[in-house]
Nucleic acid binder design. Structure first.
Length: 732
DNA sequence: AGCACGCCGACT
DNA sequence: GTCGGCGTGCTC
């Protein structure tokens, strides 16, 4: 009888699978898809994943090698999971070996054995009060630990426990024997400390009913709820029902910085064991979380983008919080959208998926309008809070101080004088985006990019925000020697300086990547602001998410024009989302917020619909514009990028690609380019791109199915770095 | 992606 | 005379 052929996925940028013979002396009956094997690969050895077992191979028998050793008794990924990953690889036209292997924790990818589960958390099993009387006198240390745990919300990292109680081991053991605490992996809170559910408002109840009407079928929902309308509470109620049926829940969030608070909230509210997955974990922690989810021990996975590929049995609900957030799209390598994959995953698992946002993406809104998603709207803010009032400020012909108009300065002064806080938002860190010579026109060009180096006055450096290239800030013009070199434009560092001079009696906190670079700094800065009292906040993007400042009543957006006029057709959408999200940081019931938007285009129709009506009105108008221009979401795009030593090589490669595409597309898909990328040079590499666009989605897939495999065999393929981006979200 | 092979400059 | 620079080509 012929030996079976093993088809393996290997971490290599090759599209197909690799065929091997079974390891010598191994009973082939022990082999199952989803197991890992070590195999000889070229001159070295690699860990691969068994995907299929076949009977024959297209590779001549003389070239077939035998796998060396089987690593797992049981499959690491089940069939459902592998099928989903392979589907995703095909959809994004990315090598399936890389996609499948990237669903495994790094250690397993490298062929290491599964880690033995090691507890990393301590959980409280009883309220300290219940045992207080018995313990308080007799065992004060045990009592102390119980109280500490309670204050931490019922669970704590073992690491934190050891730091807090360096010699607490024996005491902890005593508590375990007493049944007061337990050790385990991942976050969890026992029922005793469960936070009771909030009563739902009618709108929330309606949303809950819509989703839970059919929990055993695929159904997509857009939870379109204004800031403060209680989307999270709706998630919890749905999750509660799904968990009660013994099925598991996947909750995706955009940022790591949001997870610690949310994990606590989830654990307290649902009393479920949660596996947390995000990029801030060590390899070991990540694998523990992965095992916790895969084994079904954690019925809930809470994680960022990559968690959409987590293994968890009996998936019964997928939640995508802040679904519009750009971080759901991976911007390199395997360029998937976790939001889109969440929908596919739910559909394959036959369960509901809920996309939540106060500022939904135009993609999702369109799906909701067309009836493909259930559209669940929450329009009421909790506690009767009112929406912040937005106002456009025309800054044409105004004397600006560091980019701030007199009206803004006056508003800041009044706000501070009332003992309230104001936030000045500018999405540009550093002192100024350019340093320029008045004598000869020299600009602080980055030597490696088609961009200017930003002046960071505090560090005395010019830094490129695209490649990190930096140099000491010159005192005279490097080109003509003139000492008349001056910054152009503003960044947050300059705003901070100006506002400190202007309002020296008030505290000012600047929050951006430079100010909050070290771990924990951000939390410290934010905590300072939340204490209240008059003060100024200056910051970027970082301020837009998650945090609410109750004493904040004024928000100033220094520059919204950059979002209104940009090469990227999505920039207005992103700016509108940013404005609404930042505005959402301000105000409370008795102190409504005010938002001032500085612009030189006060009559811009999109800006006006956002300010005079609301985000929804803005979105409808923006969608109409997209429709007329034939742009996504009213059409589908794929972008083929190429970079090389010279622009000619990159463009030459894409020229060949364009020709191939043109021939196969036969007019059903538009082929635009090749053109130089908007930033034609980055980190020393010259970049060009080719855009494919069509109103008929299946045509795009059909074209890519033909085109992408052919690209690897183009004569110039070896000289360029190229990639395919299906559904690109920014064209850089 | 690794990792080898291969063909040209500054070093013990 | 070598060590090593990274261009280019392949991996069942």
């Amino acid at each position: 009888m012929n030996s079976p052929i093993l088809r393996l996925a290997l971490p290599a940028p090759v599209f197909g699978l690799f065929d091997y013979l079974p390891p010598a002396g191994l009973d082939p009956a022990l082999l199952q898809p989803g197991q890992r094997l070590m195999v000889p690969f070229g001159p070295s050895e690699r860990c691969g994943l068994l995907v299929e077992i076949g009977t024959d191979s297209e590779i001549p028998g003389s070239r077939l090698k035998a796998a060396r050793v089987l690593l797992d008794e049981q499959p690491l990924l089940d069939k459902t999971q592998m099928d989903f990953l392979r589907w995703a690889a095909a959809y994004y036209h990315h090598p399936q070996g890389e996609v499948l292997m990237s669903a495994l924790p790094v250690r397993l990818r490298k062929g290491k054995a599964l880690l033995k589960p090691r507890p990393d958390h301590v959980f409280l099993l009883q309220e300290p009060d219940e045992v207080a009387d018995a313990l308080k006198k007799r065992a004060p240390r045990q009592y102390e630990i119980l109280c500490w745990l309670r204050d931490k919300g019922g669970s704590a990292r073992l690491e934190d426990f050891r730091r807090q109680f360096p010699s607490g081991r024996s005491i902890l053991n005593a508590l375990r024997l007493r049944g007061c605490v337990d050790l385990g992996i991942g976050e969890a809170v026992p029922g005793v400390l469960q936070t009771p559910a909030h009563e739902l408002e009618p709108e929330q109840q309606a949303a809950l009913d819509a989703v839970t009407a059919n929990l055993d079928e695929y159904g997509a929902f857009l939870l379109d709820g204004v800031t403060g309308s209680g989307k999270t509470e709706v998630y919890f109620h749905i999750a509660e029902q799904v968990l009660a049926r013994g099925r598991s829940v996947l909750l995706l969030v955009p940022e790591i910085s949001l997870t610690p608070q949310l994990v606590r909230r989830v654990a307290r509210r649902l009393a479920v064991r949660v596996a947390v997955m995000h990029s801030g974990l060590s390899d070991g922690e990540r694998e523990q979380a992965w095992q916790l989810a895969r084994s079904g021990e954690a019925r809930m996975v809470l994680g960022t983008r990559s968690a959409v590929f987590a293994s968890l049995p009996d998936l019964g609900l997928v939640l995508v919080d802040e679904e519009h957030d750009a971080s759901y799209k991976q911007q390199e390598g395997f360029r998937y959208s976790a939001r889109d994959m969440a929908l596919v995953r739910a559909s394959r698992a036959a369960c509901p998926v809920v996309l939540g946002s106060a500022t939904p993406s135009l993609e999702s809104l369109r799906n909701a309008m067309d009836g493909r998603y259930g559209w669940l709207r929450l329009t009421r803010r909790a506690g009767g809070a009112r929406a912040p009032r937005m106002q456009v400020l025309d800054v044409r012909n105004q004397r600006l101080a560091a980019g701030l108009s007199p009206v803004v300065l006056q508003a800041l002064e009044q706000t501070l004088a009332r003992g309230e806080q104001a936030l000045v938002f500018l999405n540009r860190r550093g002192y100024a985006p350019v340093l320029s010579c008045y004598g000869c026109g020299w600009l602080s060009d980055c030597p490696r990019c088609d961009a200017r180096q930003t002046l960071h006055l505090g560090q005395g450096k010019l830094i490129c925000h695209h490649c990190g290239n930096e140099r000491i800030q010159p005192k005279t013009c490097p080109s003509c020697g003139s000492s008349e070199i001056h910054p152009l434009g503003q960044g947050t560092e300059q705003l901070e300086e100006t506002l400190k001079q202007r309002f020296p009696e008030y505290p000012l906190v600047r929050i951006d990547r430079d100010a909050a670079s070290r771990k924990g700094t951000l939390e410290r800065l934010l905590a300072r602001v939340k204490e209240g009292g008059a003060g100024l906040l200056v910051g970027t993007q970082m301020l837009a998410k998650g945090h609410h400042f109750p004493n904040l009543t004024l928000v100033v957006m220094v520059d919204v024009d950059s979002g209104l006029f940009s090469a990227d057709f999505r920039s207005a959408e992103r700016m509108a989302q940013l404005i609404v999200q930042v505005a959402g940081r301000a105000g409370r019931a008795e102190l409504p917020g005010r938002v001032l938007l500085q612009t030189r285009f006060p009559d811009h129709p999109l800006l006006r619909s956002l300010v005079e009506e609301d985000y929804n009105a803005f979105a409808r108008r923006a969608l109409k514009e997209r429709e007329m221009a034939g742009l996504p979401p009213c059409s589908s795009q794929a972008l083929i990028r190429a970079s090389a030593r010279s622009l000619e090589i990159a463009e030459g490669f894409l020229e060949q690609a364009a020709e191939l595409a043109g021939r196969s597309a036969d007019g059903r898909v538009a082929v635009w380019g090749p053109v130089p990328a908007p930033m034609r040079k980055r980190a020393g590499r010259h970049r060009a791109q080719l855009l494919l666009q069509t109103g008929q989605r299946p045509e795009l897939q059909r074209l890519l199915d033909l085109l992408v495999p052919a690209l690897s065999s183009l004569p110039d393929a070896g000289r360029v770095r190229w990639s395919v981006d299906v559904d690109p979200v920014d064209l850089y």
